[in-house]
C-alpha cells in the first residue's frame, strides 16, 4: 500500500496453533453469554411464581447485563488485550457520561414525583 496507509504496522497475525487456542476462548465466551441469557429469560418467566421481590429481580437483570457487556467488549471486541492507555481512552469518557446520566435520572426522577405538574 501507499506510504500514507500504515495500517500494516499494527496488524496482528497469528499461527495455526495460536488460532486453535483463540477459537477455544471464543466458544467458551459464547457458552458464558448463552448461559447468562438463559438465566435472564428463565428468571423473567418464573420470578412471579417463585415469589421473588421485584427489586431483587431487577438488580439481578442489571448485574447479568453488565456481565454480558463486559465479556463482549473485553473478549469479542478485544479491548482487554489492547494497551492500558487505549482502554482508558475508550472507557473513561463513557463511564463519566453514564454516571452523569444516571445521577440526573435519579435526581430528576425523585423531583418529578414531588412536583408533578403533569398529573
Amino acid at each position: 500500500m501507499s506510504g500514507f496507509d500504515r495500517t500494516a504496522e499494527y496488524v496482528s497475525h497469528h499461527s495455526e496453533e495460536e488460532g486453535k487456542k483463540m477459537r477455544k476462548t471464543i466458544w467458551v465466551i459464547f457458552w458464558v453469554l448463552l448461559a447468562v441469557t438463559t438465566v435472564e429469560v428463565s428468571l423473567g418467566l418464573v420470578w412471579k411464581e417463585m415469589g421473588l421481590a421485584w427489586n431483587f429481580v431487577k438488580i439481578t437483570f442489571l448485574v447479568l447485563t453488565l456481565v454480558k457487556a463486559y465479556y463482549i467488549v473485553a473478549y469479542y471486541m478485544h479491548l482487554k488485550h489492547e494497551y492500558k492507555n487505549f482502554i482508558y481512552m475508550v472507557a473513561l469518557p463513557y463511564i463519566v457520561l453514564i454516571v452523569y446520566l444516571i445521577v440526573m435520572l435519579l435526581v430528576e426522577g425523585v423531583y418529578i414525583n414531588e412536583v408533578d405538574v403533569l398529573k
Binding site: S12, H13, H14, S15, E16, G19, M22, R23, I26, W27, F30, L33, L34, T37, I72, Y76
Partner: peptide, 18 residues
Amino acid sequence: LIMSSVTMVLAVEAGHRM
C-alpha cells in the same frame, strides 16, 4: 444476535491466519 457475534469474531480470527 449472540450467535452472529460469535461467527463474526471467528471471521476475524480466520483473518489473522490469512
